[in-house]
């Protein structure tokens, strides 16, 4: 696993020497800032609608301004992982080094998770702003970030899988968007179904997932789901790499 760390280190460095990381970060800060601003002004002008919600709980996953950018950003964050290396042929020296497919995949996955965490650092500013003008429950904030991390665990894994399957970065991003988008739509379909279907879809739903976590409810079933999906994504990526050795 030492090789995985070596690969992760290089991958993180290459993330942050590429302009795309900064473009993404700036756009992300802008969009989340806008979302936060809209929520704060809405709560300020409609003081009676609060209930158990506040701008922070709403911010974490209960508006489309959170999910649409995220569904677009996540595949862009992972698109280069394998597709770029294949395009530039650097996958060949990597895969002929004495390291296993699993090390390579875990290394790249780890790097994408680092990027995911970095993406959320600027949002601490919103937490700080709310804390200056009202009381916030740090436990709820921690749960929100745990939820976000859980979503990242499998979003990054499946984005990486798209990058391993696709022949170039653009295809990887589009494919990743469709896969994550499909899960998202399937998830919110819980609102139009009943009974068992609704329960199953709700289990898949990142929206319900974040709705719980943003209110401070840590539902371990969602964490199990995140970890299962992440493991599956990593496993399938390893399979794709092995299959490519055979198919050429």
């Amino acid at each position: 696993m030492r090789a995985a760390l070596t690969i992760a280190k290089r991958e993180v460095r290459s993330y942050f020497v590429s302009p795309i990381a900064y473009v993404l970060l700036v756009a992300w800060v802008y969009i989340t800032g806008l979302s936060f601003y809209l929520l704060v002004t809405w709560f300020a002008t409609n003081p009676s609608t609060g209930g158990s919600n506040n701008p922070l709980t709403m911010f974490f996953g209960q508006t489309v301004l959170f999910w649409i950018p995220l569904l677009l950003f996540a595949p862009v964050m992972t698109m280069r992982l394998f597709a770029a290396e294949r395009a530039s042929n650097t996958l060949e020296p990597l895969m002929t080094a004495p390291v296993s497919e699993l090390s390579i995949v875990l290394g790249k996955y780890l790097a994408s998770l680092v990027f995911w965490v970095v993406l959320w650092i600027p949002t601490l500013l919103y937490v700080w702003i709310v804390s200056r003008y009202g009381d916030i429950d740090l436990g709820v904030v921690a749960a929100s970030y745990l939820g976000v991390f859980g979503v990242g665990l499998w979003y990054m894994a499946w984005g990486m899988l798209a990058s391993a399957v696709a022949s170039n970065q653009v295809v990887a991003a589009v494919l990743g968007f469709f896969v994550l988008g499909a899960f998202f739509v399937l998830g919110i379909a819980e609102f139009v179904h009943y009974d068992l279907t609704r329960e199953i879809l709700g289990y898949l739903s990142v929206w319900s997932h974040m709705a719980d976590f943003s209110k401070g409810v840590v539902d371990s079933r969602y964490l199990v789901f995140d970890l299962t999906m992440a493991t599956l994504g990593v496993y399938l990526t390893v399979q794709v790499l092995s299959w490519r050795r055979i198919s050429g």
Binding site: T6, R10, N89, T90, P93, T96, A97
Partner: peptide
């Protein structure tokens, strides 16, 4: 490998250190 694919953004010694660790 053919065409000697390398990471263009890295410095020579960085790249070789990285490869050394990998190996």
């Amino acid at each position: 490998p053919e065409g000697v694919p390398l990471y263009p953004e890295m410095r020579v010694h960085e790249y070789l250190r990285y490869r050394g660790e990998l190996k």
